[in-house]
Design a binder for these strands. Structure first.
Lengths: 238, 238
DNA sequence: TAGTGGTCTAGACCACTGA
DNA sequence: CAGTGGTCTAGACCACTAA
């Protein structure tokens, strides 16, 4: 690393960042083709791509598989104490939420899920897989696992909306204690495919385990957020 | 992307991941040189490095600038409701914490810091910059900003230990309400240099704003964690 | 000083997107 | 079907680390 002259990659990052921050590339706007950009900056595609990947890591731009690079929209604020759900959070911030239902079925619980939900070995669970969007952009892949004893017939209902509201309306179950685990990782095969990004993209993994008003473990969510789509906040009162 | 045959990068990732998970490369252990590995996997260094970067993103390995690649130690659990501090958290999990004091001085507050601490324009603040280690490994870069009115003479004290304990012992100030903001990003120049990693490495940025027992804003921390060193947990009681 | 990682060049082919 | 991004090759030089 040269200490006097900045790296080519750094220079490209700065130039692009400056353009984005000054609004020359509006949020959601597509960047020019990689080959064009590498000409503009008089470098190779490899080097240019390294710069793009760094900007992606910073959250300034994102890519859609085989479609190109885009300026990132603002992050959505996820207040853990807000006790709210995706649709409400997103609409509350003036954005448009939507949900793709990927699959929903009863299946044997993995050892990991049994542990989370405190179920005996070889239990069955309801698995619901969904991809969620903000203003049309895929930002969140979730696997929900529900204790089937508490939600008879749920697979017949409309699972493309808020599960929270479904629980309340059909089962009179409300969230009580909720536990969050958060860890930065990279997207694995399933999540990457669902979000249409390349495997290994940085992401924030959140595991929610939810209890109801009586303290019973009712379900858990394995969430995978695009790392640049979210901003988590918590206020701890003494 | 070929759909039938897996990518070279994916194959390399799997092979290395398998070795690590089966303990052939113990945590903290150094991987062979990149050129050696690229021979082993019969590929180029570029391709091999892409695999290493993906494993880094997953948190399985990490690098030290110009020293090589190492298997990652386990993440440390950061319970936001634990109301504990770095040294206590780390020792409590059987690991060894240490702290490098990078700088400590009174300086004009940036507009951003004024906003966080609710200070008038052109205020001065005490800035303390530290790098913190777990078992010798640099994992956290922190900038602390203190309201100087509350901590007279603090620059004369030993700032390499727990500030929490310093506040209590010398100023009878204890934390009350605490606010956390968390967002995944990439390390910028200062943090990257302090942690001796390359700019643009994935990281978890945590902003803490702390109030004392009387609700006064006393200080804030801008924390930058190596993304693979931490596991955040919160329990929300209804 | 030898070897390592950090950076960069100059190409190539393929699969997919979108017109 | 043209253009794009995804992937890969086969090198090179430099700065730094560790012996």
């Amino acid at each position: 690393m040269r200490n006097d002259a900045p790296r080519a990659v750094t220079a490209i990052c700065k130039a692009l960042a400056e353009q984005i921050e000054h609004g020359l590339l509006p949020p959601g706007g597509k960047l020019p083709a990689e080959r064009k950009l590498s000409e503009v900056f008089d470098t190779t595609r490899i080097t240019l791509r390294e710069a793009l990947v760094q900007l992606e890591a910073q959250g300034l731009i994102y890519r859609e598989e085989r479609r190109g690079w885009f300026a990132s929209p603002p992050r959505v604020l996820y207040n853990l104490l807000g006790r709210s759900h995706f649709n409400a959070i997103v609409s509350g911030q003036g954005r448009k939420p939507s949900t793709d239902l990927l699959s929903a079925r009863l299946q044997p619980a993995s050892a990991y899920i049994c542990g989370l939900l405190d179920l005996p070995a070889l239990s069955s669970v309801v698995q619901i897989r969904r991809a969620r969007r903000i203003d049309g952009r895929l930002v969140l892949y979730v696997e929900h696992y529900l204790n089937p004893a508490l939600f008879p017939g749920i697979l017949e209902l409309d699972l493309s909306g808020s599960l929270t509201e479904l629980y309340a309306a059909h089962y009179k179950i409300h969230y009580g204690r909720v536990r969050f685990e958060m860890l930065p990782t990279a997207l694995q095969t399933e999540a990457a495919a669902a979000l249409r990004v390349s495997q290994g993209s940085p992401a924030l993994h959140i595991v929610r385990t939810n209890r109801d008003q009586d303290g019973r473990l009712i379900d858990c969510d394995l969430e995978y957020w695009r790392h640049d789509a979210i901003h988590v906040s918590v206020e701890v009162i003494d």
